[in-house]
Design a binder for these strands. Structure first.
Lengths: 210, 210
DNA sequence: AACTCCATCCCCCAAATGGGGGAGGGGCGC
DNA sequence: GCGCCCCTCCCCCATTTGGGGGATGGAGTT
């Protein structure tokens, strides 16, 4: 079980050779399949063979790595896929992660860090290049509402209750207020946030636009 | 500019000593401030001094690292904060990241990896322990709705329109249907997804619970 | 043929919602 | 003192929403 089965999908012959050659030398790593395209990979994959980790290039001709990801995860649900690419744009990163990638390494990653990244991923972790990680974290922050500042303390509380999906009546209970009071606050929140009602409010919140 | 100013906030005396001692020895790293609490850190911080990176423990007595994060980012907007902790629960990770942490390292991280992580962060990247990274990535995936499968094609369309915040009438227009038809589909969607109305639906969608 | 699911549309009704309005009291700043 | 904002509560009214019922026709299964 110490032997980690690894598959490599990479179109550039030189890179492919470098990668497979280097990784083959690593103790505990077992390169079981090397393909030059996602189509080839899926076709060549023997039924019995299930790599623990797949190193997947994104800039593939034909079926792109991004499009191949769901197919690979379907064929090998328990395998972890590390996406390797020179692209570091938020869209591609987001796509790769939402399609089940367990790692996202830039091609600029030193070869020497690959074995560790592969072991981390196989061990239930994830490996992200620093630049990529920063992009990912950026998706978590944007909370600071420029609007929220305009909301009075009470309105802020009411706002949060609305986000929680409460009805006016329930908000009144939670905050110990009269129904009519809550209705007043709610209307004020709508005005200050420039929304027409709780549905628009929630649908924007769902998109992180608030 | 090659010298990286580093501040350390850590309550455990032994760990504090180990960290500061080890990091002080690293070439290019300059430990400029070591505090045993967030309060001390904010108080001791000279006005002219702006560390590039702050190593922040989360399990602090008094003001927790999590609560201190926003204050630190306020005082030092350009500084990158690396959170260091033994906690790996999703809540704390999420909180730390949404409050502006640029890195999240577990206490189990080998000392030897710290300098690299610090340099990566200072260089505009982010550093996450593998386990943490996996947790973070999990937040990106969950799209595949187990429910969605149960929705008929029309219902799926209606569902998406609801997420977009449309009213019944607007859904009818978008899909070229009669209002009553839409109302029927909407009700069916509610039943199949076990929600009581669009507010619960949207508020769950906002939390990624759908 | 009988059954089930889907899509389309219709009706009724009670509750919740949004958009207006107003009013009294408290606090803060000028 | 006067104005302004916040908090509290009240009323009216048109629309929307949820929940319940039912009807028709088509497609697919058994």
């Amino acid at each position: 079980m110490n032997s980690l089965n690894l598959a490599i999908v990479e179109d550039d012959p030189e890179v492919r050779w470098l990668l497979s050659d280097y990784l083959r030398r690593q103790p505990g790593l077992n390169v079981v399949l090397v393909s030059e395209s996602a189509e080839d990979f899926l076709a060549e994959l023997p039924d019995g063979l299930s790599p623990h980790v797949v190193l997947l290039d994104i800039g593939l001709p034909g079926l792109s790595g991004l499009d191949a990801l769901p197919l690979i995860k379907q064929r090998l649900p328990q395998a972890d896929v590390i996406v390797q690419t020179m692209f570091e744009d938020a869209d591609r990163i987001y796509l790769a992660l939402s399609r089940g990638a367990s790692g996202y390494l830039l091609k600029s990653t030193p070869l020497g860090q690959l074995p560790q990244a592969i072991r981390e991923v196989a061990g239930g972790g994830s490996s992200l290049s620093p630049v990529v990680a920063r992009r990912v974290l950026a998706h978590f922050k944007p909370s600071p509402q420029p609007h929220a500042a305009a909301l009075s303390p009470r309105e802020q509380q009411v706002f949060e209750a609305l986000i929680d999906g409460l009805a006016d009546k329930e908000v009144a209970q939670r905050l110990g207020l009269g129904l009519e009071t809550v209705r007043t606050h709610v209307k004020n929140v709508y005005h200050k946030l420039h929304v027409s009602g709780r549905i628009e409010l929630l649908s924007r919140a769902a998109r992180g636009q608030l």
